[in-house]
């Protein structure tokens, strides 16, 4: 039976991570609990962040919002400050799973989970967020674009935890998040995309269509909506590397990725025109 630790401070938490055997950070537990029930999780020590004051805070700063790791996904969706500051992020958080999962899952656990299908990373990628990683060695900043290093692997070291996410203000322009599932409507996404158009650049974050969430940008100077779609599809092409599974084969997932990006780009272009 694994031991559950409930540290009162961040220092205590990172100390535990560096000393106990085979530790695992416990955030909202929505991913962990499932693995425990299925009997395939063998952590010896859980370090639960729930009791540490301050980790549930959303702190506005100069042009950035710092989100504590234990802020729930639901709050990222509903909090007025997040919605005003980075509406695209709020929208991506809004579309995660279902209200029960969103109420329990944490913003830190969500990115630390590192799954290639997660929705919020697509928005964090285009917004160029920064992940704060803390350990006994101190706190370092990891650009989110360097955070997802491989299939279910993040830049977080074993003795580190996500202690915050810094989200820059969404620049003027248009941002859209679109996700598509391939089976039940409420299933995990089979393709998702965040598109952010600022000035002459189109930023695209892709979910579920490669072993990691992917980010690309392309020049959108002088393009009409069809031109933008073509440019976006050309830009994402080298990034598409879907893993075939029960939710679809490679060809279908590529197709769905393109349809998803196209929808997001068109919607963003419409917004720009109406702005």
């Amino acid at each position: 039976m694994p031991t559950l630790h409930r540290p009162d401070t961040l220092d205590e938490a990172v100390e535990l991570l560096s000393t106990v055997d085979n530790p695992m950070v416990y955030g909202g537990g929505t991913a962990i609990q499932i693995l425990i029930k299925q009997g395939i999780l063998f952590a010896d020590n859980f370090v639960d962040l729930a009791g540490i004051p301050g980790l549930r805070e959303i702190t506005p700063g100069a042009g950035v919002l710092t989100v504590g790791p234990m802020v729930s996904v639901r709050r990222m969706e509903t909090d007025q400050r997040v919605r005003a500051h980075a509406p695209l992020a709020a929208e991506a958080y809004h579309q995660v799973a279902n209200p029960r999962v969103r109420n329990t899952a944490s913003a830190g656990g969500n990115i630390a989970h590192g799954d290639y299908r997660l929705d919020p990373p697509t928005a964090l990628l285009v917004l160029d967020a920064t992940v704060l990683a803390s350990s006994v060695r101190g706190t370092r900043e990891i650009p989110v674009r360097e955070f997802f290093v491989d299939f279910q692997e993040t830049a977080i070291e074993h003795d580190e935890l996500v202690s915050g996410i810094r989200i820059p203000a969404q620049p003027p322009g248009a941002g859209r998040f679109v996700k598509n599932s391939s089976l039940g409507e409420n299933d995990w996404p089979c393709a998702s995309a965040s598109v952010l158009v600022t000035g002459s650049t189109m930023h695209i974050g892709l979910g579920a269509v490669a072993p990691t969430p992917r980010y690309v940008a392309c020049d959108a100077t002088g393009l009409d909506d069809q031109g933008a779609v073509d440019a976006a599809l050309a830009a994402i092409e080298p990034e598409l590397d879907p893993i075939p599974d029960v939710r679809g084969g490679v060809a279908y997932k590529r197709r769905l990725a393109r349809a998803t990006v196209e929808d997001a780009v068109r919607a963003a272009w419409k917004d720009l025109q109406h702005a």
């Binding site: 075939p244 599974d245 029960v246 939710r247 679809g248 084969g249 490679v250 060809a251 279908y252």
Partner: peptide, 12 residues
């Protein structure tokens, strides 16, 4: 890439 992957019967 297995273009014809049939989700019911993974054949890739």
């Amino acid at each position: 890439p297995d273009a014809t992957t049939d989700s019911a019967a993974p054949t890739s």
